[in-house]
């Protein structure tokens, strides 16, 4: 049972109070975009064994979406943060680097 702290209201919610939303920090491609870019936006999802950034909604709580950085192998949570950002905050990236020195780093 994953337990994630919603950064919007501060509740440490268990998985049954949350709704998963897949990979975070996707860039939307709309009309005018190439087939390749659109395909990648629609279908190509990272599925790493290790550090991953995800969208979660505190569905049975404050209703807000937030983002989480966690390890898909050990389920260690490096942090949760606001959904109103295009990339993970520096302090979370620093924390991940310290804990996972071989991590390739975040890229858009």
């Amino acid at each position: 049972m994953l337990i994630l702290t919603c950064p919007c209201c501060g509740v440490a919610a268990e998985e049954t109070e949350l709704q998963p939303g897949g990979e975070a920090h996707l860039k939307r491609f709309g009309p005018g975009s190439s087939d390749d870019a659109f395909e990648a936006y629609m279908f190509a999802r990272a599925n790493p064994k290790g550090v991953h950034f995800e969208r979660w909604r505190h569905a049975y709580g404050c209703g807000k979406w937030f983002l989480a950085a966690r390890c898909t192998a050990t389920l260690e949570v490096f942090g949760t943060y606001s959904a109103q950002t295009k990339e993970p905050p520096a302090e979370i990236v620093t924390k991940i680097r310290a804990k996972r020195p071989d991590w390739a780093g975040w890229s858009a």
Binding site: Q19, G21, R28, R55, R57, A59, G63, K64, W65, A83, Q84
Partner: peptide, 13 residues
């Protein structure tokens, strides 16, 4: 409603 909130919170905030 969730779909609307998703776009408002995560894309067009």
């Amino acid at each position: 409603h969730g779909w609307m909130e998703d776009w408002l919170q995560c894309e067009w905030w």
